[in-house]
Each structure stands twice: as structure tokens, then as C-alpha cells.
Design a protein around this nucleic acid. Structure first.
Ligand SMILES: [Mn+2]
Ligand SMILES: [Mn+2]
Ligand SMILES: [Zn+2]
Ligand SMILES: [Zn+2]
Lengths: 143, 143
DNA sequence: CGCATCATGAAAGTGATTTTCACTAACATA
DNA sequence: TATGTTAGTGAAAATCACTTTCATGATGCG
């Protein structure tokens, strides 16, 4: 899993004529071994413990590269911070977001996906991406 | 329609012990007679023509009040600006957003809404709100 | 190695939104 | 109507999450 994503990233770097650097490898390892839906600041703080010399800007730039290479997806859950999640090959899911504790649960629903395509088609739209987020209280926060 | 929303807002203002002001009424009228999905800046610029003395901060504060009172909904379509749309009593819709020209099309789909509730229930979630946005190219932009 | 490029980190810049603060307007009450 | 209390306003400063700049450092093909 990690190996596969590291390879995808390194291949992307090479194909784009970019360089393989110590920082990129450190950030990649930290990202791949972290929880999903990490904000840039969370990842930066986590990194800073072992690597106090890695700059904020480098983390931003590198996460963007991850997204470009296809191993990460940029997400906005309305809390003002961009979050990045891991992306598996050909995988897709949507999210339940707890407004109480911030927990993020992933789900897949083929029927909804199909209906979305139908809606788009009915309006002559060619869908590129979509965002489906259900906000509410998770089982624990409902008390 | 406008009358109803104005009443809802004035009732809300009163109930909260807030004050009815000239600026709020001006902004309310401008909002209600504007296109849907207006950004704060667009509304501010529109207002400034007739009311050059109304401050930016007041427009921000007032639009938030509209959302709190239930006559408006805050939206983020990923272009970095918050937009506000009109909300009718008990009305709900989702959006198709054209990544080419920025057009926003509204749609309703009861089946999707039902499936969302099922997904939430299956995870013990109590849904408060949700966001479903389909991004792609509109019929015109597909050329 | 040599060196053209790309990458990095610190700091400055951006752009949207929020806060501050001195002043003004609402409105309940006298 | 005059007054007092509280909320609202506008201009400007501050914040926040990023993005860019720029001088310096690392990478990697030949
Ligand atoms: Mn996810
Ligand atoms: Mn709408
Ligand atoms: Zn929760
Ligand atoms: Zn279009």
C-alpha cells in the first residue's frame, strides 16, 4: 500500500522532471503513516517533532504535489482548513462529518453515484468530480 | 415572497433582542432582489452604487444574520468566496456547478435525499445538513 | 566534478473575512 | 420629548490560511 503510493509519487516526480529530495520523502512517509483527513497544519506539527527544520511552505507545496500525483485528495469540510486524504487506485467514497467531535466517516453508495450521473445527464452536464458530505452528530455525540 | 422573508428576518431580529436598522433593511432589500448565489463582494459592490456609506463589515455581519434567521444559506463552491443563496420555507436543493463558466444549476432529487438518510442511519448518524455538489461542464461549455 | 535546475526555508505578501474601537442610532423608559 | 442603555456602524487594523519571493542549498545528467 505504502510502497505502491511511494512508487506512484516517485514516478510522477520523475516524469515531471522534478527532483527527489529528503524533505519530500520525509513528508511522504509522515503522510502515508498518518490518519486520513489530516490538515496541513496537523501534518506540519507532527513533522516538526522529528524534523524541526522542515518549512511550512514545503509541506504545503509537497501536499499539493501528492494531490497532483494522484495519491492524495484535497478536501474542504467547512472548518476553514484544507485537509488531505489518502486515495487508493480507482477508489471513491463520500463522507459523514460529525459537527460535534469532528469525526469523519467514509462511505460508498453506488446507487447515489448512479443517480448523480442521471441528474447530471438530465441537465446536459458532464461531471468531472462531485462532493457529497453529510453533516450531523455521530452516534457517540448524540449521547 | 420578499414580504415573507422580510417578516421572517424582522421577527428573528426582534426575538433576539437586536435592532432594526436602516442598513439592515437596505442590505435585505438588495439581497432579496438579487440573483441567487451572490458573493459578499458582489453584493457589497452592488450596494455601494446607491449607498456608498455602507461598510464592508456591515455587509458581512448582516449576511450572517440572514443565514441565522433562515432566509439565506451560506455556500462554498470552491472559488474562495462565500456565497449566499435565498432559502424558501422548507425548500431544499443541491447544485451542479460548471467549472467552465461558473454557472450554478439547482436540482432536487428525492431519491438521493432518502438514500442519504439511509446511509446516515446505518452509521448511527443524526444528519443536520448536507452538501451535494456536482462539478463539471455545462451543456454550453462542453461545446 | 561542473553546473543548469529545481527545491527549500524564512519572511513578506495576499485575499477573504473578522475584530477593534470610537462614535452613532434604536428604543424602552421616564 | 429627553435620557440612558445597549446594540450597530464604518474605517482601519488584525487574523487566518495560504502563496509567493528570494537568497541559498541540493540534485542529477553529462
Ligand atoms: Mn475520506
Ligand atoms: Mn442554490
Ligand atoms: Zn461526534
Ligand atoms: Zn458552463
Amino acid at each position: 500500500m505504502k510502497r505502491v503510493k511511494k512508487k506512484i509519487f516517485h514516478d510522477y516526480i520523475a516524469k515531471q522532471g522534478l527532483k527527489s529530495t529528503r524533505q519530500r520523502d520525509i513528508i511522504l512517509e509522515a503522510f502515508l503513516s498518518s490518519d486520513r483527513h489530516l490538515s496541513i497544519e496537523e501534518l506540519y506539527l507532527k513533522l516538526r517533532a522529528k524534523h524541526p527544520n522542515i518549512g511550512y511552505a514545503t509541506v504545503y507545496r509537497t501536499l499539493k504535489l501528492f494531490a497532483e500525483s494522484g495519491i492524495a485528495r484535497e478536501m474542504q469540510f467547512g472548518d476553514g482548513q484544507t485537509r488531505y486524504e489518502h486515495v487508493g487506485e480507482g477508489e471513491h467514497h463520500d463522507h459523514l462529518v460529525c459537527t460535534g467531535c469532528g469525526a469523519i466517516i467514509e462511505f460508498e453508495n453506488e446507487t447515489i453515484e448512479t443517480l448523480q450521473k442521471e441528474v447530471a445527464a438530465a441537465h446536459g452536464f458532464l461531471i468531472q468530480t462531485h462532493k457529497l458530505e453529510l453533516y450531523g452528530l455521530c452516534a457517540r455525540c448524540r449521547g
